[in-house]
Design a protein around this nucleic acid. Structure first.
Length: 806
RNA sequence: GCGACUGUGGCGGAAUUGGCAGACGCGCUGGAUUUAGGUUCCAGUGGGAAACCGUGGGGGUUCGAGUCCCUUCAGUCGCACCA
C-alpha cells in the first residue's frame, strides 16, 4: 500500500468534509479531550510530541466512534524564554521566529492525521489572546488576588529574571540550571495561598495519578498547630509557630530567623557585632550552600531573653538560619528533648535539654524523642497524651490571649512578574500621584511593542522603550509609567483551556454559559513535570474565576493522564549534547505516520515510556501487511452464510474477546495491550484461514470488525481498507464494535488440576457441570499421581482451577 | 535525610479479586515456498537429562503469592532544615 498517497488522500478528504469539526448542537454528548499545548520551540516535532499527540488522538477517535461529540483543540504556548534567548543569540525577533515555528508545527501536526479542530486554535502571543490574559490579571487585581510587595525573591542570574517558587528545583533554575540567588524586589504576586485549603481538599475529587496528587499535597504542605506569643524581658512581643504545643514546658531557648524584624531591636549592644556578622554569613550561605542537606546548624545569642508564657521561665533568644523567615512566623521555640534539629543545635551550644514527654508503655523513648507520647514535668498537664495536650495547652493560653490554634501552609503566593520581553505586559500604570493604577478594560490589550532592544542587562527590556513606558494615568490624567515587567508564561497557560471553546469571542474572555457546558476537560493528557506548576496554577485560576462568578465548576481537569518519556536508544534522555536524538522524520518518511504511531503505542507503555528501539518498527509494519493481506482475501473470497462449526465458534469467541479487551484497554490508555489483542485476533484469522477451506461469512464480519477496532490507531490505513471493502465514508462515523457477551460463554472450560498446589494436569469440563461432577472428573484425571493418599479438601476456583489437598 | 514508584526470559514488555507466570512482539531454531537471498506461511523457543527450579535478596501469611505483610538491596522521580 502506498502510504504517502493514502495519507494525502484521506487528510484532504477529512478536511474537505470537515469531518472533525465540533458540532455545537451536540454539546450534551461532548467529550473534551485535551493535550497540553506545545511550546513552538524548534521547527520540527520531536518523538515526544508524537508520543503525546499520536496515542491521545487514538483515544479521541475511539471516543468519537463510541458516540461522543469529541472536542479536541490544539494551540501554542507561544510566549516564553526560549524564543527570546534564541533572539538574543541570532538577532531574529521572537515574534518572527515564533510565528514561523508555529506555521511549521501546524503543518506537521496535520501530518500526524490527528482530529484536531483547527477552527479553535489559540496562540498565547497574539493580542486577541493576551488581551484576555491581561483582563484576567485585572479581575484578580480587583478581587485583591493580585498584589504587589517587596519580598526576597528567587533570581536567576542567567535568565535575568525572577522565578516563582515552583520554578526553582533544588536551588537551581528549572529552565537553565543556574544557581538561584535571593534578591529583594517589588513584584506582582497572585494570592494562590487563599486557596491552599481548597486546592488540597479538592484533590480527593480528581481522577488523577496518585503520585501527582501527592506531589501537590506535599507542595501545599498543610500543617496544623498553634501560634504561641512570647514576651521578652524588655516587653517586646513575638510569636512562634509549633505543631507540638504539648512540648511547651520543654522550651530551653527560642530562635528567630536572622531576617526577623525584631532582631535589630532586641540585640544587646555587646552582641551587635556578632549578630551582624552572622547575618552576613547566613545570607551568603543560603545562596551557595542550599544544596547540602545535612548542613551544620549554626546560630548566635543576641543577649535578650524571652518569657515562656506557660511557666514564666526565662530562656535565651538566638538567631539561626535553620529557621526560615518565610515560613510560619519566622520564629520557633527550641525543645531539644523532642525535636531532632533542636537537639543537635542545643547539644552544640550547650543549651539545657529537659524531657517533657515520655513514651507510651515500654516504648524506647531515649532523647531526642519525637514521637507522640505522654506529658511529664508539665504541671497540671502531666499524664495527658500528645493529642490531648496539644489542644489543652493552647486552650489555656488562649484565655490569656497568648496563643491560638493555627494552620500553616508551605505553599507561597505565586510570583508572576518577569523581567523579560517576550510575554504579556502587565496592565498596570504607575502614577506619581495615584500609585499603581489598573489599565481600564476598554484600553486592553496593552500591546507588546515590536521594536525593543531586548539584550539582557538585568532589567526589564521594556524599560528601554520610551514609547511603551510613557503614558498617562487613567485616574488623574497626569504623566505616568507603565509596568515594565511581563507576566510569567504560566499565567497564559493557566486558562487557555477556557478560551479554546470560545476562541473567537471578541467581547469577553469566554462566554460563561457556553464554557460551563463545555468544561471541565474530560481527559487531560500531558507530561508529569507540570505537577506543581501548570496543573496547580490552572486549578487556582479556575477556582478564582468561579468565585468571581465566571464559572460554575470547581476543577478544570476531571481526569488526567501523564505520558511517559521516550528516551534515546542508550536509555538516557534524548538531548543534542548526548547525541542520542532519534528524529521521527526519517522513520515517518520510510514507514508512514500510521505505522509510526502504532509503533509508539505498541512498543512503549504509554504511562512509562522507555528507550527507543528500532526493531519494533519492522514488526509493526509486518502487522499492517498481515491485516492488509487478510482484508484483500476478504475482498476476493466467496463466503457462505450458515451455522457455526467448532472452528467458527472459536473464531467468534476470539473476535468478541478482542472487542471487549480493546474497548477496555483504550479506555485505560493501555494501547500496547490493545494492539497485542488485535495481533492475537489476526493470528486467529490466519489460523482459521489455513484450516477452513469453505469460509463462513463470519470470517468477513471479523475482518470488518478488525478494521474498525484498529481504526483509531491507524486512521489512514483503515479508512482505505474500509473503502476497499465497500464500507461507508467515514469509518470514523461508524460505531465501534460492541462485544456480544453470549459469544464469550463457552460450552467447555479447561481447568488446571493441582494436588497440594502443584500442577498435575488439565481437564476440559462442560461449563454446566456441577461441583460434584467437576471434582469427580478432576480426581479421575490425576488418580495416578494421587495414589492412595486421602483427599482432605478440594478447592474449586470457577473457570480456572481445581486444587486437591491430600 | 523524608516521601512515592519501579525491579519478571537474550531483549521490549503481559498477567481482573491472591488462582495454569512469561500474553503480544523482537531475536533465535527447524520446516515449507523460492535457483538463491529477501518476503510469506507453519512449528518450536524461561532454566534443567530429570525430579524439579524459577518474577532483585531474605523472612512471613495462605490450600495457593509476581500480586498481601515485614525486612534488605538497586534504580527512577519528587521534596529538602516547613518547626
Amino acid at each position: 500500500m502506498d502510504f504517502k498517497q493514502i495519507e494525502k488522500k484521506w487528510q484532504k478528504r477529512w478536511e474537505d468534509t470537515k469531518l472533525y469539526s465540533f458540532d455545537k448542537s451536540k454539546v450534551d454528548k461532548k467529550m473534551y479531550v485535551l493535550e497540553m499545548f506545545s511550546y513552538p520551540s524548534g521547527a520540527k516535532l520531536h518523538a515526544g510530541h508524537w508520543f503525546n499527540y499520536g496515542p491521545s488522538d487514538t483515544y479521541a477517535r475511539f471516543k468519537r466512534m463510541k458516540g461522543y461529540e469529541v472536542f479536541q483543540p490544539m494551540g501554542f504556548d507561544a510566549f516564553g524564554l526560549p524564543a527570546e534567548n534564541y533572539a538574543i543569540k541570532t538577532g531574529i525577533h521572537p515574534e518572527d521566529s515564533t510565528l514561523k515555528n508555529i506555521a511549521t508545527m501546524e503543518k506537521q501536526l496535520k501530518a500526524i492525521g490527528a482530529t484536531f479542530d483547527w477552527d479553535y486554535e489559540v496562540k498565547t502571543c497574539m493580542p486577541d489572546y493576551y488581551k484576555w490574559t491581561q483582563w484576567l490579571f485585572l479581575q484578580l487585581y480587583k478581587k485583591g488576588l493580585a498584589y504587589r510587595k517587596e519580598a526576597p525573591v528567587n533570581w536567576c542570574p542567567s535568565c535575568n529574571t525572577v522565578l516563582a517558587n515552583e520554578q526553582v528545583k533544588e536551588g537551581e533554575c528549572e529552565r537553565c540550571g543556574s544557581v538561584v540567588v535571593r534578591k529583594n524586589l517589588t513584584q506582582w504576586f497572585f494570592k494562590i495561598t487563599d486557596y491552599a485549603e481548597e486546592l488540597l481538599t479538592d484533590l480527593d475529587k480528581l481522577d488523577w495519578p496518585e503520585k501527582t496528587k501527592l506531589m501537590q499535597k506535599n507542595w501545599i504542605g498543610k500543617s496544623v498547630g498553634a501560634e504561641i506569643d512570647f514576651e521578652t524581658t524588655t516587653g517586646e512581643k513575638f510569636t512562634v509557630f509549633t505543631t507540638r504545643a504539648d512540648t511547651l514546658f520543654g522550651v530551653s531557648y527560642v530562635v528567630l530567623a536572622p531576617e526577623h524584624p525584631l532582631v535589630e531591636k532586641l540585640t544587646l549592644p555587646d552582641r551587635m557585632e556578632a549578630v551582624e556578622n552572622y547575618k552576613i554569613e547566613s545570607s551568603k550561605a543560603t545562596e551557595i550552600d542550599r544544596l547540602s542537606s545535612a548542613r551544620e546548624k549554626t546560630g548566635v545569642e543576641i543577649g535578650a531573653y524571652a518569657i515562656n508564657p506557660i511557666n514564666g521561665r526565662k530562656v535565651p533568644i538566638l538567631i539561626a538560619d535553620y529557621v526560615l523567615a518565610s515560613y510560619g512566623t519566622g520564629a520557633v521555640m527550641g525543645v531539644p528533648s523532642h525535636d531532632d534539629r533542636d537537639f543537635v543545635f542545643a547539644t552544640k551550644y550547650g543549651l539545657p535539654i529537659e524531657r517533657v514527654i515520655k513514651g507510651k508503655d515500654g516504648q524506647n523513648d531515649a532523647l531526642p524523642f519525637t514521637d507522640y507520647g505522654v506529658m511529664v514535668n508539665s504541671e497540671e498537664f502531666d499524664g495527658m497524651t500528645t493529642e490531648e495536650g496539644k489542644i489543652a495547652v493552647v486552650k489555656k493560653l488562649e484565655k490569656e490571649n497568648k496563643g491560638r490554634l493555627k494552620t500553616n501552609y508551605r505553599l507561597r503566593d505565586w510570583l508572576v512578574s518577569r523581567q523579560r520581553y517576550w510575554g504579556a505586559p502587565i496592565p498596570i500604570v504607575h502614577c506619581e500621584h495615584c500609585g499603581a493604577v489598573a489599565v481600564p478594560e476598554s484600553d486592553l490589550p496593552v500591546k507588546l511593542p515590536y521594536d525593543v532592544d531586548f539584550t539582557p542587562n538585568g532589567q526589564s527590556p521594556l524599560l528601554k522603550s520610551e514609547e511603551f513606558m510613557h503614558t498617562t494615568c487613567p485616574k488623574c490624567g497626569g504623566p505616568a509609567l507603565r509596568d515594565a515587567d511581563t507576566l510569567d508564561t504560566f499565567v497564559c497557560s493557566s486558562w487557555y483551556f477556557l478560551r479554546y471553546p470560545d476562541n473567537k469571542n471578541s467581547e469577553k474572555a469566554f462566554d460563561t454559559e457556553w464554557i460551563n457546558k463545555m468544561l471541565p476537560v474530560d481527559k487531560y493528557i500531558g507530561g508529569a513535570e507540570h505537577a506543581c506548576m501548570h496543573l496547580l496554577y490552572a486549578r487556582f485560576m479556575t477556582k478564582a474565576l468561579r468565585d468571581m462568578g465566571y464559572l460554575n465548576f470547581d476543577e478544570p481537569f476531571t481526569s488526567l493522564i501523564h505520558q511517559g518519556t521516550i528516551l534515546g536508544p542508550d536509555g538516557n534522555k534524548m538531548s543534542k549534547s548526548k547525541g542520542n536524538v532519534v528524529s521521527p522524520d526519517d522513520k515517518i518518511q520510510k514507514y508512514g505516520s500510521d505505522v509510526f504511531r502504532v509503533y509508539l503505542m505498541f512498543c512503549f507503555s504509554y504511562i512509562e515510556g522507555g528507550p527507543w528501539n528500532d526493531s519494533g518498527l519492522e514488526s509493526v509494519q509486518r502487522f499492517f501487511d498481515r491485516i492488509e493481506r487478510m482484508a484483500k482475501k476478504a475482498y476476493e473470497v466467496h463466503f457462505y452464510d450458515g451455522s457455526f462449526t467448532a472452528d467458527e465458534k472459536e473464531l467468534n469467541y476470539v473476535r468478541n474477546y478482542t472487542i471487549k479487551a480493546v474497548n477496555n484497554d483504550i479506555d485505560n490508555f493501555s494501547f500496547n495491550t490493545a494492539i497485542a489483542r488485535l495481533m492475537e485476533f489476526v493470528n486467529a484469522l490466519y489460523a482459521y484461514d489455513s484450516k477452513v477451506e469453505k469460509k463462513n461469512k463470519l470470517f468477513l464480519d471479523c475482518i470488518v470488525d478488525l478494521i474498525k477496532l484498529f481504526a483509531p490507531m491507524a486512521p489512514h490505513f483503515t479508512e482505505e481498507l474500509n473503502e476497499m471493502l465497500g464500507g461507508k465514508y467515514s469509518i470514523f462515523n461508524l460505531s465501534y464494535p460492541v462485544c456480544d457477551e453470549k459469544a464469550l460463554v463457552r460450552d467447555e472450560i479447561e481447568y488446571a488440576v493441582q494436588i497440594n498446589s502443584k500442577m498435575r494436569g488439565r481437564v476440559v469440563i462442560s461449563s454446566s457441570a456441577s461441583n460434584e461432577e467437576i471434582e469427580k472428573i478432576a480426581l479421575n484425571e490425576v488418580k495416578d499421581s494421587l495414589g492412595d493418599a486421602t483427599v482432605k479438601k478440594i478447592i474449586i476456583i470457577p473457570k480456572r482451577l481445581i486444587n486437591i489437598i491430600a
